[in-house]
Computed example of a mutant assay.
Amino acid sequence: MPATDMPAVPFVEVVVVGALDAAAIPRMRVQLEDAAALRPVHMVVDLADCPRLDAAGIDLLVSVHRAVWSSGGRLTLRGMSSRLYRLLALARVDRVLQTAPTPAGYEPRHRSPGTSGRTEAAGTECSQRDDEVRWWETAATG
C-alpha cells in the first residue's frame, strides 16, 4: 500500500440524526465522503438516531465502506435498531458491513450527559481533538 493511502487519522465518528433515505443522501453523501477522505483507521457511523434506511442509504454506506477499506481502515455501523439490522440482512450486506451495538451508558463526546444531542440549529459541526475528528449532523429545524 503506498504511503499516501495509509490511514491518516485513528478515529472518525459520524452521528446520523434522521432518516438515511433518498431525500437525505445529497447532504449525507458529502458528510460521509468527507469523513472517509480523512483516511481513518476506524470510522464509526452512529445510527442510533436514524429511524429509517432505504436502498439509497444502504448504497451510500456500502460506498463509504469501500472508500474506508481501500485506504486501509474499517467502517463500523453502531447503535442500529433491529429494523435497520433486518434491512441490511434483506439487502444481503449484513456480512459486508460491520455492526456494533451502542454500549450501555454511551454518550458521544460531543453530547452533554442526559441530552439527546440534538440542537436547534441546522447544519453540520465538527470537533477535532489532537488526532481524532468527530463529525455529526445537527437536527434540522422545522
Rank of each mutant, 00 (worst) to 15 (best):
A89Q: 12
A140S: 05
M43Y: 09
D130L: 11
V16S: 05
A67C: 09
V14A: 06
A3Q: 15
G57P: 00
A36R: 00
M1W: 12
L75W: 06
L87C: 04
V64N: 00
T115E: 09
M1N: 08
A104V: 14
D34Y: 13
G114C: 10
D46I: 02
H110Y: 14
G73V: 00
V41A: 10
I58F: 03
A122L: 05
Q31L: 14
E137Y: 08
A100T: 06
A100H: 04
V14N: 04
P113V: 11
E107N: 09
E120G: 11
R109P: 06
C126V: 10
T119S: 14
T138F: 05
A55H: 10
W136R: 10
I58W: 06
L47W: 00
T76C: 11
V44M: 05
T119N: 07
D34A: 14
L61T: 00
P2Y: 08
E125F: 10
G105P: 08
H65S: 06
L61K: 01
D46C: 00
L38A: 11
T4W: 08
L47P: 03
T102D: 01
A23Q: 15
D49E: 12
V30M: 07
A100E: 09
L20M: 11
R74H: 07
C126L: 15
A36L: 06
D46P: 02
T76P: 13
D46S: 02
L32V: 10
A140K: 09
A36S: 15
P113C: 07
R66D: 15
V62Y: 08
L61R: 01
T115V: 13
R78T: 08
E120N: 12
D49R: 02
L53N: 00
A22Q: 14
Y106I: 06
I58E: 06
E137H: 13
A36I: 09
P2V: 07
A35V: 02
D49F: 01
A37Y: 00
A19D: 10
V62C: 15
L84M: 08
R111K: 12
S112N: 09
R83W: 03
V12W: 00
V62S: 05
G18V: 12
V64D: 05
L87E: 09
C126I: 11
G73D: 00
A67M: 13
A37L: 10
R74S: 11
R134Y: 04
T141D: 14
R66H: 14
R27S: 13
G72F: 01
E125I: 11
R118N: 13
E137V: 15
L32C: 06
A8P: 04
L53C: 01
R109F: 12
V93M: 02
V14I: 09
G73F: 00
L97A: 05
R95H: 12
P40N: 08
V62Q: 08
H42G: 02
V44Y: 09
M6Y: 15
C50T: 08
P103W: 02
A56Q: 11
R111T: 09
S63D: 13
V9H: 05
A55L: 13
T99S: 15
A122R: 07
